[in-house]
């Protein structure tokens, strides 16, 4: 069962995603902020995929990805952002994050996540 970490400051987006992915048979943890996600990981939680917004209160998306990556280096990321102007930072490329894993809000159909998750995990498993 894929373990999905969703980090988004918008509760309805977190819950919407969680509902959809759980319906797809995935285990989903949600966090409003990156810090709490990190705390939960420190408490021993592990995830396969992290879906996160780039604009987050306090620690922003890029720092968050970096921190989560440092915590769990095999964690893979899908970016779900409401901003079309925010460019991905070049360091992310080194972690295998490129444009095809960036999804712009709003999504008409969340199945793209399911496909992307399967694609990412399929490569691993």
């Amino acid at each position: 069962m894929p373990r999905i970490l969703v980090v988004d400051d918008e509760a309805m987006i977190r819950e919407g995603l969680k509902a959809y992915l759980e319906d797809e048979g995935m285990q989903v943890d949600t966090h409003e902020r990156c810090e709490t996600a990190l705390q939960s990981m420190e408490q021993g939680r592990c995830f396969d995929i992290c879906i996160l917004d780039l604009r987050l209160p306090q620690m922003d998306g890029h720092e968050c990805i970096q921190s989560l990556h440092n915590r769990q280096c095999d964690l893979q990321f899908l970016i779900y952002t409401g901003s079309s102007t925010d460019a991905l930072q070049s360091e992310l490329g080194a972690m295998g994050i490129d444009d095809q894993y960036v999804f712009h809000k709003p999504l008409m159909d969340m199945s793209v996540f399911v496909r992307a998750i399967h694609q990412l995990l399929g490569g691993v498993s």
Binding site: M12, G82, K105
Partner: peptide, 12 residues
């Protein structure tokens, strides 16, 4: 986009 996203996800 965020509220839109919430609306649309909820809807879906």
């Amino acid at each position: 986009n965020n509220p839109l996203s919430a609306i649309l996800q909820a809807c879906q």
